[in-house]
């Protein structure tokens, strides 16, 4: 795909084009959430629905290193404070 063909002029365009789509969000503290994006602002505060959160818990005590325990939970409607956001990835539109 031609990079210039996507019509993105500033990074927030990527987020705006993802409204009402399911997005992947990587957060500080080894957390990830996916959910349908309904609102965001310039701080990257987000409001998502149908959210699944994944927390990676690295077990350093009784497991060979590299073992990661994963905790998952679901939430209907979630506000995510922007300062915890590392990365947002829209659904891959082929």
């Amino acid at each position: 795909m031609d990079p210039s063909a996507t019509g993105i002029q500033e990074p927030f365009d990527l987020i705006r084009l993802s409204l009402s789509e399911r997005v992947f969000v990587k957060l500080r503290g080894d957390r990830e959430v996916t959910g349908i994006l309904h609102a965001y602002d310039g701080h990257m505060n987000l409001i998502l629905s149908d959210v699944e959160e994944t927390i990676m818990i690295v077990d350093t005590e009784n497991a060979p290193d590299g073992t990661v325990n994963v905790a998952k939970r679901k939430m209907e409607m979630l506000f995510v404070r922007g300062d915890g956001v590392i990365l947002v990835s829209p659904p891959s539109r082929a």
Binding site: R16, L19, S20, G29, I36, H38, A39, Y40, D41, I47, S49, M75, E76, M77, L78, F79, V80, R81, G84
Partner: peptide
């Protein structure tokens, strides 16, 4: 604050998206 779980029945998602745009 990390998260706030909101009452989804009181959130108009269409309204939110329009306001965000």
């Amino acid at each position: 604050v990390r998260y706030v779980q909101l009452p989804s029945e009181h959130v108009d998602t269409q309204l939110l998206e329009d306001a965000t745009r």
